[in-house]
Nucleic acid binder design. Sequence first.
DNA 1: GTCTATAACTCGATAGAC
DNA 2: GTCTATCGAGTTATAGAC
Lengths: 204, 204
Amino acid sequence: MVNKKKNDTAHERILIAAKKVFFLKGMAGARMQDIADEAGINKALLHYYFRNKEKLFELIFKEASNQFFPKIADIIDSDIPLFEKIESFCSEYIDMMQQNAYLPLFVLNEVNKQPHRFRERFWKNREFLFSKFVGQIEMEIKNRKIKPVSPAHLFINMISMCIFPFIAKPMMMMSSGMDELQFRDFMDQRKTEIPKFIIESIKR
Amino acid sequence: MVNKKKNDTAHERILIAAKKVFFLKGMAGARMQDIADEAGINKALLHYYFRNKEKLFELIFKEASNQFFPKIADIIDSDIPLFEKIESFCSEYIDMMQQNAYLPLFVLNEVNKQPHRFRERFWKNREFLFSKFVGQIEMEIKNRKIKPVSPAHLFINMISMCIFPFIAKPMMMMSSGMDELQFRDFMDQRKTEIPKFIIESIKR
DNA sequence: GTCTATAACTCGATAGAC
DNA sequence: GTCTATCGAGTTATAGAC
């Protein structure tokens, strides 16, 4: 696909191409040649700009993780009522992923295959993102605003229902015959269906 | 790890080793040498028994998909009351995955990277596994046994909450400081927590 | 069946012209 | 900055001895 606009710099086109190829094939499966073709340039130029595959991957992976995680924290740790928080988390998170449906599988897969990339650089200041969320839930239980539930399970339930469909997207589409548009509709529905489902379960 | 029992045949040891290596690294990241080492034999013997990497992978992948999917169908399509079905699905499915925690990520990842492997051979007689489940839910709604909910979303919610934690396992363990045992406990809890959570949401 | 040795090939990376 | 040509490491796969 050499049809990129020529007024983009090579540097930019490489980054876009690399993201596409790495998201689709992962670090191990991606080929520098694929990235060069996708960017409409030459293999040597990749090395000119980014030195080697490792460094190029590193950039893409870091950007992807930053997109995958901290947005979670912002919403989860904000100072709004629990039910609103659940609603806005589901809606905003799904919205973000719809612009990058491959992101969750890419990140989780690479974390799994190369845990060190994570432990070392990314997991510094992020430990226990959720303490505020957990505290808020415990408070609501204590005040008898919601039923007694395990905060940890509630949190994982919410995350699971938002993210998993993106990970299983190709499978869901094949098994149900959905097309891209129908999948998008389905996920749009989930922005409200998931909060409704959760709140129905925990409300008094 | 050449410590495999010598009374296993080479053929068997290769399959066990291949499964381990492919699950961990995927098709693109796996090396025939790794598999040979893991099996305690020689690279040439791999080709003697399985001809090439492609064919060996095919076997492992096929077995993994068969383990991942059809068990779902058995429970989902069985003839038991809805709440019991939800309980037994969550419990049995999580139980199965606990014996093979890498399986979901492996299968979903490879489906994503090579959709043809799926479309062609696997998706023949499995379309619409869930029609019976959907029908059952619609019936319960009609009879006012449960609240009106979208069967499709309910189904995906259940699946998501059961499978996603296995996919995010390394990340969850890192971010919360869990060890293997604590993760196992957590998933044991989910066998009952998820059904409780779902039923609480949909019951009248 | 199992091994050693090596051929054949893929792919990341570099040299060097323009 | 960008390209062509090519090197060399790492991998799959095969030949052939035992």
